[in-house]
């Protein structure tokens, strides 16, 4: 057992076991696909949560990194016949490069400016997906992306894809938990609470913000590649502003600065539109409503807000004022 799993061993392995059983309990292809999407969205939310929930840096263009992963994988495999795994690695590298180039100037901005800059970046990337039709297939998208294969087995069965995607997501979950509880994680939270104090305490905030931006972009890129190889067809509309907002909603519902909350947020907001048949037309209305209500009343996010209340109660009984966050 590698050391990095040991830390949250119990929680992560219990969760992994639970998720491993899902394909035995869920036989319908439709619901298995739903669980696969939950896995992809969880991976995305985990990354965005590190950036937004922990470091307090908003990104309204995160769909762009998801798209960069998907498109790089798609283009390399479809147009250049690169095999999927190396293509996926290349996609992560490309995304990291883009994240660095855009992150270095962007993360110097704060507050509203950062929000607008990431939003603008997201829209530019989306326009590129749509307009560079020679490379990306334009508005109609890219078809025929091959599925991944592992040890000679082509992963075109939802059951296989399910295990692959959740395997990656659980790994990312463990990594997130480790980062959050480390020297670096503390420094990230410190930036969120008071950037001047973090700097005075010796934290190179500029560098750390770029690091977490890149890590969260890499998560998104990985999710994008997995998505592309799973659905085998991608088009620009999956990577637009609305998707970025959905990701933010997942983080907000999950609770800013809670790794397990990110899983909850992604699961709830992925399942909800599918479970409620009539949801579809109301989807953006409900997402918008959730964002407003949660942020007005529980700015720490839904689960975080409840967790805080619960912990406050626990600490209150032990005579310690307020909760350890």
């Amino acid at each position: 057992m590698p050391a990095f799993f040991r830390h949250h061993l119990l929680h992560v392995s219990a969760f992994a076991l639970l998720m491993a059983l899902v394909p035995f309990m869920v036989t319908s292809r439709y619901y298995l696909n739903l669980f696969i999407f939950i896995g992809i969205h969880t991976l995305l939310t985990l990354g965005l949560n590190l950036l937004m929930g922990y470091a307090g840096q908003i990104s309204l263009g995160h769909a762009a990194f998801f798209g960069l992963g998907a498109y790089t994988s798609g283009i390399l495999t479809v147009t250049y016949h690169v095999s999927p795994w190396p293509a996926m690695g290349a996609a992560v590298l490309v995304t990291i490069m883009v994240a660095l180039v855009i992150g270095v100037p962007t993360l110097k901005l704060t507050g509203y400016y950062l929000g607008m800059a990431t939003l603008g970046f997201g829209i530019i990337v989306n326009i590129c997906f749509r307009e560079l039709s020679g490379i990306t297939g334009g508005p109609s998208g890219l078809v025929g992306i091959p599925p991944l294969s592992l040890g000679g087995v082509v992963l075109d069965e939802p059951r296989y894809v399910y295990y692959l995607i959740w395997g990656v997501t659980l790994g990312a979950l463990a990594v997130s938990l480790n980062i959050v509880d480390s020297r670096v994680g503390r420094a990230l939270r410190a930036i969120h609470d008071s950037e001047v104090a973090a700097r005075a305490s010796g934290v190179d905030t500029a560098r750390l913000k770029i690091w977490v931006f890149v890590v969260s972009a890499a998560y998104a890129s990985l999710a994008g590649s997995l998505y592309a190889h799973f659905v085998t067809f991608i088009s620009p509309s999956s990577f637009g502003f609305m998707f970025s907002v959905k990701l933010v909603t997942m983080v907000v519902v999950g609770g800013m600065a809670s790794v397990w909350g990110a899983v909850f947020g992604a699961a709830t907001l992925t399942a909800l539109p599918e479970v409620l048949a009539a949801f579809h037309d109301y989807e953006i209305l409900i997402f918008g409503f959730i964002l407003m209500v949660v942020m007005i009343f529980l700015p720490q996010g839904l689960t975080r807000g409840f967790l805080d209340l619960a912990e406050r109660w626990r600490f209150y009984r032990r005579g310690i004022p307020a909760a350890k966050v």
């Binding site: 309204l60 507050g111 609305m242 907000v252 953006i284 918008g288 964002l291 407003m292 942020m295 700015p299």
Partner: peptide, 23 residues
């Protein structure tokens, strides 16, 4: 009604309002 208005909170609220009105 926002009790502790910070940029990130207000961005999310107004973005939420934006897509709510759109919906």
């Amino acid at each position: 009604p926002v009790r502790r208005p910070s940029a990130i909170t207000l961005i999310i609220i107004t973005v939420g309002a934006s897509i709510f009105l759109r919906g």
